[in-house]
Nucleic acid binder design. Sequence first.
DNA 1: TATTATTGTCTCCTTTTGAGACAATAAACA
DNA 2: TGTTTATTGTCTCAAAAGGAGACAATAATA
Lengths: 243, 243
Amino acid sequence: MKKKIKLNPAIRADGKGFLKNLAYDSVIFGFSDGQLKILLMEYHNTGLFALPGGFIQEDEDLNEAVKEGLKERTGLDDIFLEQYYAFGDRRRFDASVLKKILLANGIKPDPDHWMLGRFVTVAYYALINYKNVQPKPDVLSDSCTWYSLNELPLLILDHKEIVEKALNTLRHNLDRKVVGGNLLPQKFTMNELQKVYESILGQELRRSTFQRKMLGMKILRRHQKQFSGKAHKAPYLYSFLKR
Amino acid sequence: MKKKIKLNPAIRADGKGFLKNLAYDSVIFGFSDGQLKILLMEYHNTGLFALPGGFIQEDEDLNEAVKEGLKERTGLDDIFLEQYYAFGDRRRFDASVLKKILLANGIKPDPDHWMLGRFVTVAYYALINYKNVQPKPDVLSDSCTWYSLNELPLLILDHKEIVEKALNTLRHNLDRKVVGGNLLPQKFTMNELQKVYESILGQELRRSTFQRKMLGMKILRRHQKQFSGKAHKAPYLYSFLKR
DNA sequence: TATTATTGTCTCCTTTTGAGACAATAAACA
DNA sequence: TGTTTATTGTCTCAAAAGGAGACAATAATA
C-alpha cells in the first residue's frame, strides 16, 4: 500500500487541495506539576505564539484532519478529542499577522495569497497524558512546548479566546463525562485524580466527598498500593474501567 | 443610509462573495399542541426536505449570517440561538441531491458549479415562540412549515443527524440554562412550562417537584390568574425575570 | 349546594452532599 | 523497639435536594 504523503499546507503556494476559508485549531491539555498546561507553537523569528492548527484536505473528514494533525504534533494516535466551537467572526482575522509569519519563513506572499484570506476555524480540545508526549513543531514554527494556563504568552488573533472557551467547555463536560482520567497515566492515586479535577474546575474539592463520589460511580478499579517512601500510609492505585 | 441588498446565493452562478466550502444549517424549534416541532423547507418539484440554511458572505460574521437567515425565514429578530456543532464528514455531501434541486429550479449547473462542491456546515439551534411566526420559504423552496419531531419526512444529506444532535444538545443544556421559556409566549402557566420541559426531555415529570424546583430558582414572576372557563381552580400566569 | 378537575402547597421519606472525625499505616525518629 | 508524623480509607452526623403522594383551595357545572 502506498503511503500517503501529507504536504504541509504552508509550503504550498496555491493552497490547492485544501478547503478554502476553513481551518482548525486544537487546545491540547496536559497535566504536570499539579497544573493544567496546553501546547503552544512559536513561529520562527517572530515571537508569535499560536495554537496548533491546520487545514482540511478536500478528501478528508474534518475530524480526521484534526486527529491527523494531533498525531503529527504529539505522536499519539488514540486521543480524547472533542469539537466544541466554530469561530467565525470576520474581525478575528488579521492578514498582517499571517504575512509576518510567512515572511519570517522566507515566503513572500502575494496580497491574494490564500493564507492571507479570511478563515473560519473549528476548535477542538484534546486531553492527553503529559508523560507520553514529545511535542514536535511544524515547518513554520521552531517550538511546540507546554505552557501553564496561568502564564500563557500573548497569543495571535483570537487564540486566547479559543483557549478560554475550551476550558469552559471542559468544565461543563466534567460532570457528564469521565474525562479527567485522560490527563493521567493509566494508574493513578485518588489524590492525583482529585488534583486534576481541581485544576480544571479552578477550585478545591473536599477530599472525602470526592473519594466517595468517585468510588460510588463504579468506574474505578483498585490495584496495589503505591509506596512513595514517605512517612505515611500508602495510597492505592486506580485505573478506569474500560467499556 | 443605503439598504444592503442580500442576494440569494442560489441565484448567483459563481458563488462569489461567499465563503467557499462553508454553509450553515439551523434547527428551529417551536412548540404547539404539546409537541416540539421544527421548521423544514421543501424544494420545488423535488419532494426533498431540508433544514433552513445558507451561506456566509465574505464580509459577514458567521453568527450574524445565521441570525440574518433566521430573520428571513421567521421575521423574528431577537432569537435564542446557539451554535452546537460543525459537521464536516466528507461523505455527508452528495452532489446529485444539490443538482436535482438546482435543475428543478431551472438552473442547469456545470459539473464544477460551486454549489455542487463539498461543504462543511455549522449547525445552530434556535428556540422561538411558535405563535409569533409566519415562516417564509426562500427562492429555491416552495414551503417552510412546521413538522412534529415525531413525524419528520425524509431529510436530505445528513440533516436527520443534525436534528438529532440538536435535540441532544438542547437536552443537555436544559439544566444549565433556563432555556425552556423561549418556546412560550411571555406569560404562561406552570403546566405549559412543564409540558415544554417534558417534550424536550422526552419523559414525564412530577408536577409538584417541577413546580417546587422552578419556583425555587427565583427566576419566575407571578402575575394574575388565568381563567380558562373550565370547572376547576385557575392557574397563575408566570413570566421569566429579565437580567 | 354538591360535584369535578386542576392547582398551589405541604408532608414524609429517601438520596445526595457538606464537613469533619477517626482509626490505620508507612516511614522517620528517638 | 516504641513514638511521632503525614496521609489515607472510611465512617458519622447534619444539611440540602429530590421523589412520591396527600390535601385543602377554587372556578365552573350540574
